[in-house]
Simulated assay, not measured.
Amino acid sequence: MSIVVNLDVMMAKRKISLGELAERVGITQANLSILKTGKAKAIRFSTLEALCKELGCQPGDILEYQAE
């Protein structure tokens, strides 16, 4: 199984930069970059909630399951 992170797609739709989103959510640009590239092993619900709030989306808009 594979979880795909579509954070870059949502950021492009909302026209927001990595630095601006990181500042608004309260995490470092480095950690947001790790999440955006799909290299993160986990995400806190509080971080996911903050991302959804700032991007005006649902968790399913950011995270997607794809069968291998």
Results as ranks from 00 to 15, higher is better:
residue 34 I to P: 00
residue 5 V to S: 02
residue 15 K to A: 12
residue 6 N to K: 14
residue 36 K to W: 00
residue 52 C to Q: 04
residue 32 L to K: 08
residue 15 K to I: 03
residue 16 I to R: 02
residue 17 S to G: 15
residue 51 L to S: 04
residue 9 V to Y: 03
residue 11 M to A: 04
residue 38 G to A: 09
residue 20 E to I: 08
residue 5 V to D: 00
residue 35 L to K: 01
residue 8 D to K: 15
residue 36 K to R: 14
residue 59 P to W: 08
residue 66 Q to I: 14
residue 31 N to E: 05
residue 48 L to C: 05
residue 63 L to C: 07
residue 57 C to S: 11
residue 68 E to G: 04
residue 7 L to I: 05
residue 9 V to H: 07
residue 64 E to A: 12
residue 36 K to F: 01
residue 57 C to T: 13
residue 8 D to W: 01
residue 54 E to S: 10
residue 56 G to F: 12
residue 37 T to S: 12
residue 59 P to L: 10
residue 62 I to R: 08
residue 57 C to H: 09
residue 56 G to L: 10
residue 66 Q to E: 11
residue 48 L to V: 06
residue 7 L to Y: 04
residue 52 C to S: 06
residue 22 A to I: 05
residue 62 I to L: 15
residue 34 I to E: 13
residue 25 V to E: 11
residue 6 N to E: 07
residue 9 V to A: 07
residue 54 E to W: 03
residue 66 Q to A: 10
residue 48 L to F: 03
residue 15 K to N: 14
residue 47 T to K: 09
residue 31 N to W: 04
residue 56 G to Q: 09
residue 64 E to W: 00
residue 68 E to K: 07
residue 7 L to Q: 07
residue 54 E to H: 14
residue 1 M to P: 11
residue 14 R to E: 14
residue 54 E to L: 09
residue 40 A to H: 01
residue 63 L to G: 06
residue 4 V to N: 11
